[in-house]
Computed example of a mutant assay.
Amino acid sequence: MSHLDILKDWYHRIWIEQDLAAIDAYFAPHVGADGLMPDGQVGPEDFRALVPALTALVRDLEFIFDRSFETEDWLWAQISVKALGAHDMREVRTTGQVAMRFEGGKIVEAYNSFDFLTFFASAGLLPEEAFLLLLSGERLG
């Protein structure tokens, strides 16, 4: 199985099927993912809370793998995310990138960068022009 196949399986099994018990099958012990939360790595226990929290906001979640590049032990992928807002069925979209190193078919390093500002704005949880408001110096909240 290629590294991209493992990543696709991760998103399908964990994020779409909500098989949270399978999280440990993807990560080597004591490994977390950087870049998802401002205060550090997200480990398996954190994913068990993060996945339901984010997926409660959307329906019909879909991950599109726009571009990817693999080496012997690294994978980089650019991902588009599409869904419908759980409350009003509006279109929710965002993009992100992941870089991961694999050993023995498991993730041993993971670096993420997702556009959560766009995600929360398109889900109706921030003003639609949140980026422009923040850029102008406005405070939200």
Rank of each mutant, 00 (worst) to 15 (best):
M1P: 04
S2W: 04
S2F: 03
L4S: 04
L4R: 04
K8Q: 12
D9S: 11
D9G: 00
W10K: 00
Y11K: 02
R13D: 14
W15N: 04
W15V: 03
I16G: 11
E17W: 02
E17R: 15
Q18W: 00
Q18L: 13
D19P: 05
D19R: 14
A21V: 09
I23A: 05
D24S: 12
F27T: 02
G32M: 04
A33T: 14
D34T: 10
D39V: 06
D39I: 03
G40I: 09
G40N: 10
V42I: 13
V42A: 13
G43S: 07
F47D: 01
F47V: 00
F47N: 01
R48G: 11
A49F: 08
A49G: 11
L50G: 06
V51E: 05
P52K: 08
A53G: 12
T55H: 08
T55D: 06
L57S: 07
V58L: 09
R59I: 07
D60A: 12
E62N: 15
F63R: 05
I64W: 00
F65V: 07
D66S: 13
R67C: 00
F69H: 11
F69I: 10
E70I: 08
T71D: 04
T71C: 03
I79M: 03
I79R: 00
S80A: 14
H87P: 00
D88N: 15
M89N: 15
M89H: 13
R90M: 09
R90V: 08
E91A: 15
R93H: 08
T94K: 05
T95A: 09
Q97P: 00
M100C: 14
M100G: 04
E103R: 15
I107V: 15
E109N: 11
E109F: 04
S113Q: 14
F114M: 11
D115H: 04
L117G: 10
L117Q: 10
T118W: 00
F120K: 12
A123V: 06
G124W: 03
L125K: 14
L126S: 04
E129Y: 05
F131P: 01
F131W: 06
L132W: 05
L133Q: 15
E138N: 12
R139M: 07
L140Y: 05
L140N: 10
